[in-house]
Amino acid sequence: MLLNQFLILAAILFCTGVYGVISRRNGVLVLMSIELILNSVNINLVAFSAMNDSISGQVFALFVIAVAAAEVGVGLAIVLAIFRNYRTVDIDEVDLMKG
């Protein structure tokens, strides 16, 4: 197997995630897109771990999973808080910083 096939797969997932983060209106969907990004990073880490025959990549992939869990927890809490205050999860409605 080529190293690049994994890296390019990760790149595609990453860019899809970026697209989702930018263009989704629903807060929950934005968080899902962030998960795509984090997953692509994990694929990269594990691929390089296999490439270099080093365990570090896998260790950090595990750390990333833990961080993702924390991120989803806090992120959903924020979405819930937004929902309670605005009665919507549409992030476009949250524009208090509008100039």
Binding site: M1, L3, N4, I8, C15, Y19, I22, S23
Partner: peptide
Amino acid sequence: VGALTSVVMLAVLVFTLVDGFGEDKLP
């Protein structure tokens, strides 16, 4: 804008990856 961004990013990434790792094989 999002689509443009991700397409540009993907192009840059793929180009760099192919350029950098080329035919590197996994063990």
